[in-house]
Computed example of a mutant assay.
Amino acid sequence: MSDLQILLISIGVALIVVVLLYNAWQDWRARRSMRQSLPDTGHDVLMRDAAPRREPVWQAGRPAADESAEADPACEAVIDIALAHPVAGESLAEALRSITRVGKKPVRVFAEREGGGHRAEALPGESYVSLQLAVVLANRSGPLTAIEWSNLWTLAQNLAERFEGLIEAPDQDAVLRQAAELDARCAAMDAQVGLILQLAQPRPVAAILQAAAEAGFVQARGQWAWMAENGLPRFALQIDAAEGGSAHRVDLVLDVPNSLPDDQAFSRMVAVGRDLATRLDAHVLDDQGRTFQDGSAPAIDRQISALYDQLDQAGFLAGTDRAARVFS
């Protein structure tokens, strides 16, 4: 080994020693500074008694919990709008107020809050970063049409322009194809069964409704209905006359997809119909206008029960919000 190599090695070792000594000195200075800045308590500051635990409490003015309602891909098509900047709930609510339907299809709007969570409506005091416009794919008016989908697109574009948003939506052909398939499936499971109470002579509507109330009907969801124990309608009462006029006929209608599943759904309506017919001096007819024979009720019960099963298996359990969206 040459003298030059020995010299270079010596210099390298010396430099390493200097760096190590400098780091040790810096560490000693830092520890001394920390000891001087901490109070002399006689014991380790990390082992002090912890402060009492404070349970979280609800404070007025805080946002309510996120809503559980959300778009339903089984029966709705969705257009997403990502907003470039958070938008105040007050501004968003005003813009969304008129968006309720396109053509004959209802539209639901969902807003994602800044920081997470979503609402079925924009609320004051919150900010939102994205929107969803959800339109039902099919209902009793038929499948979603190209015009209805185009109208929803227009609404989405207006919102995107107003709030600097970016739109993301499924292909129109795929949406319309899904709508047609859903319409065909649900049409095969849709049924409304009725009874007619033919009055011996016309009666004022007010008198008919009073008799219905005495028989157990209540006014709910914009109609007179016979309610189940859980508050869902079993069947409805319909009168084809103005409120202040008179009527000679009363209809009882069991809307199968929108009623509570029941093995004796029709027999129950027959029993109530007989009672109301007695109160109104009316004759009970089937929905074809023929004298109703009580002996046919069990067979109709079985048919309706089978339909309830089909609806459940298809994912549209009767009496649920999903069934109501499609069978309306």
Rank of each mutant, 00 (worst) to 15 (best):
L46R: 15
L176Y: 08
L46S: 13
A242W: 03
L237S: 10
E161L: 13
R249P: 04
R97P: 04
A82V: 11
R62W: 09
F292K: 00
D321T: 09
A306T: 03
Y128S: 11
D281M: 12
Y128D: 09
G103P: 11
R101Q: 15
A184Y: 05
I239F: 05
L176H: 07
A138F: 02
R140G: 06
C75Q: 06
L144E: 13
Q5H: 01
S127Q: 14
W224I: 01
V19A: 10
I239R: 09
R203V: 02
D255F: 08
R249Y: 02
W28F: 05
A14E: 04
N23Y: 00
G103V: 00
A95W: 10
I16Q: 07
Q238L: 12
L46A: 15
A74P: 13
D66G: 06
L260C: 03
K104Q: 11
I300G: 01
E148G: 02
P204N: 05
A236V: 04
A318H: 07
I304R: 05
G231K: 07
N23P: 05
G194M: 01
E94Y: 04
L96S: 10
R48K: 00
Q238F: 10
G244Y: 00
D275K: 14
R101I: 01
E112M: 11
L83S: 10
G194Q: 10
A299F: 07
L20V: 13
S141Y: 10
I208E: 03
G103A: 07
A84C: 09
S10K: 07
S259Y: 02
K105E: 04
A306H: 12
A50D: 14
P204F: 01
E168I: 12
L209P: 09
Y308R: 02
Q59F: 05
R62E: 13
Q198R: 15
A215V: 14
G115C: 09
L123M: 11
E243N: 09
F163K: 10
A265N: 14
T278P: 00
P63Y: 01
L123V: 06
A122C: 13
D49K: 05
Q201Y: 00
A111N: 04
R119W: 08
V129Y: 00
S91F: 03
V272D: 05
L195N: 00
G289I: 11
S68I: 01
P298Y: 13
P298W: 07
A30W: 08
G42R: 03
D287M: 06
Q157R: 08
Q293H: 14
Q192S: 13
D171C: 02
Q293D: 15
G319Q: 06
R234E: 13
L197A: 03
W28L: 03
V102E: 11
T320R: 03
P202F: 10
F217I: 07
S33G: 07
D286I: 01
E70L: 09
Q198P: 01
P261F: 04
A282C: 08
L83E: 02
D27L: 05
P143I: 08
V17N: 02
Y308D: 07
I9C: 03
